[in-house]
Structures are given as structure tokens and as C-alpha cells.
Design a protein around this nucleic acid. Sequence first.
DNA 1: TCTGGGGTCCTAGGACCC
DNA 2: TCTGGGGTCCTAGGACCC
Length: 416
Amino acid sequence: MIALVDCNNFYVSCERVFNPKIENKPVIVLSNNDGCVIARSNEVKALGIKMGEPAFKLKHIIEKKNINIFSSNFTLYGDLSKRVMNVMSAEVNKIEIYSIDEAFLDFTDSASKERGVSIKNKVQQWTGIPVSVGIAPTKVLAKVAGHIAKKYTKSGVFIFDDTDLIRRALSVFAVEDLWGIGKNTAQKLKAVGIHTALQFRQCDSAWLKTNLSVNAVRLQKELFSEVCYPLELKRKRKQNICTTHSFGTEIKQLSKLKEAIGSHANNCATKLRQEKSCCNSISVFLSTNPFKPQAKQYNPYKVIQLDVPTNDSMEIVKATIKALESIYRDDCVYKKAGVMVSRIVPQEQMQLSLFDSLDREKRKSINIAVDKINAIMGKNKVKLAVQGNGRKWKLRQEKLSPCYTTRFSDILEVVI
DNA sequence: TCTGGGGTCCTAGGACCC
DNA sequence: TCTGGGGTCCTAGGACCC
């Protein structure tokens, strides 16, 4: 048996932990640049505000309903996530951390509602974060159970412990709410009269295989309690690492794009080194503002293949700047830029080249030193000159909450 | 004025091999 | 009129997830 533990409205709950005034009040957390809604409290969901809605369209209702707005504070959310995961890890033998706010727990040794409730209460008491728990024989069913727990139970815990119960639940569970069924697939299914999870479970698997994909067949098996997605206990090495941002204000000049791309590239290199990986290929991409159809649209990208895999900041930044120069056009206004590194290999398994002229040992020492300094002094305290000192393309974060748990100057003071 | 930022997996089709 | 029958590898694009 598997338990899915899912934090309720996670980012909103994080903001509430240190700000009890917004308990039971409508709260929204916005994406980077204060662009879209990415987390909503129940009060906000009740108002009919959708996930992903652009903030500027909500100005009116925000004022009218007195909604509390926050810029995203990923430092805070990441730290609280770590705490939640730590509490749960101590409760089970095996755990798969699936995302910032979700984990699958191995309940094979004992699966009961009481165990779910006990974990839920402990997480709530020790971290301040409310969670829901769904317990079932497979991940897909645990997701369904979690859904039910969150929506229809008082305890916030739901367990699928008999097949008839599963059958009855699936008969009223919308097919588009299944894990792995997105908008497009749901549309296809509905076109042939499949509306509920039970109907999906009953349909011909050969039809699923040809018309959808093998994943649809796996999903179907999981609904029959047959495990196709086992717990993944070992953290996998990332296959791609991507850093990108929209600009607060649009950019035209090459020099500013260089700062942005250079920073993204350095960021990717740092992440590569944290993963102990090297990349064999680097891509750079730019895009204009798709929401301004009257403006000239241009979304170029350039991929550079390397002879020797690398995670050296200087080498990666240099390559991206060259790529940027090759795709830049001065008759466009850019809204977004990014860097992606791929074809990743473990750093201890890199294939060397006979004709390599770079002193890799020396570079390695430099990178280690820079990483060390930045770990102590703060991100990007030491950086490459091309990144500039500008904050010109910086994020807009007008409603940022303090980093209560990770910055000494932000620690709460208690007045007695 | 204003619309996020990460990831993964699968498939079809092209290029190539014998 | 008619032009084989196997394979592999790579990539772009689609679909999905949080």
C-alpha cells in the first residue's frame, strides 16, 4: 500500500505559517514577475478564481474582496518543504519525494487510516503545514484517494481498502481528474463517451494503446490495483537543466540580453556542479512577447554541441554568448530568454578529447572556490563580468514575504 | 502597463545501415 | 503494372506533471 501525502494549497499555507492574520482569509500567491496566480486558498477557489489567471485581470476582485497577495518566495517554500519531508521520512521506511509539496510513502508494513491521521497531525503540529493523505494499492489510486480526502472528508485522510469501494469511487470520479489524463486526452476520451474513471478502467486496452499511448494502458492497470509505477527511491540525475526568466520590462539591446543569458548560463553551470554532472550540449533561446501579436514575433534558439562534456561556468557562459550573438536581431523586442543544458552525463564518466586545449583541472579549482564562496556569502556574490551588476532585467516581486527560516535578519521577533 | 518556471516520457518520421 | 525486408538511432513535437 502507498500513501500519497499532499500539502494543502502549499504556497498559501507556507505564507500562513508565519502570518496567522491571513488564516481563514482569501490568499493568492503569484508566479515570478507577479504574473499569474499559482496558489490559491480555499476562500479564493470559492470565488471562482482560476489557477494560472493573470494578476492584472484580477485587480478589481482583489480590491473588492480584500484578497491578500504574495509574490512567490521559493526560498521559504523550499525550506518548509524540506521540513515537511523530514517529518514524513522519519515515519516510514521508504519515501519518494515527488514534488515540492507531495510525497509517496510506503505503507506496506501497515496501512490504516489511523496511521495516515497520525502522520497528518504530526506534520501539521511540527511544521504548521496542513496536508491530505490518500492511501491505496497503487500511486494512481492513491492520487484518487488523496483527491477524495481533500474534497470530501473531514479528517483529510482517505483509504481504499476494498475493491468495491474503489469501484464505487471511480464511478463518480471524472476522467480528466485522473493523474496523467490532461486536457487533450480528456477531450479524446469524452468524444467516445468515456467520462468517468470507471468507464476508462472498463474500456478496451488495445484501443487505449493505439489511440493514446502505453501510459494510458499503465494508468488503466493501476486503476485495477496493478502496480506499474513503483516507488522511486533513488533520486535520478537530471537529464536537462533549464534556467529562464521573463523580463520585468522588455529588452532590445544585445548588451542587456548578454547579462541575462550570461546569468542563466552561470546558473545552469552551478546546478550542473551541484548534481555532479556535465553537459554535452547547450541551448540558448529568446522569445518576443506572444501576448502582443501586433509586435514582430521571433522565437529563435541555437544549440551548441560540445566536444568535451563540461560543467565549467566560464566555458558554458562563453558558448551561450556566442550563440546569442548568432541569433540576435536588433529589430525585435524580447520578453524572455533562457539557457538549457542537456545530454547530461555523470562528471566522473566524461569522455575526454585528444584535442582539448582547456586546462580543466585549473577550471575545476576555480569553480570549486567560487561555489564555496557563494555558498557562504550568498548566491552570485562572485560572478562573471558579463553578468553585469545590473538589476535592469530583475524580477518584479512587489509583495515578497520575508525569508523567515533562512535569513537571520528576517527571523520573526516575538513580543510578549 | 500587466500573462511563470521548471521538468519527464512517448511517438512518429527521417536518416541511415545491411 | 511492377521496385524488399529487416533493423537502429536521433530528433522534434506533443502531452503531461508540479
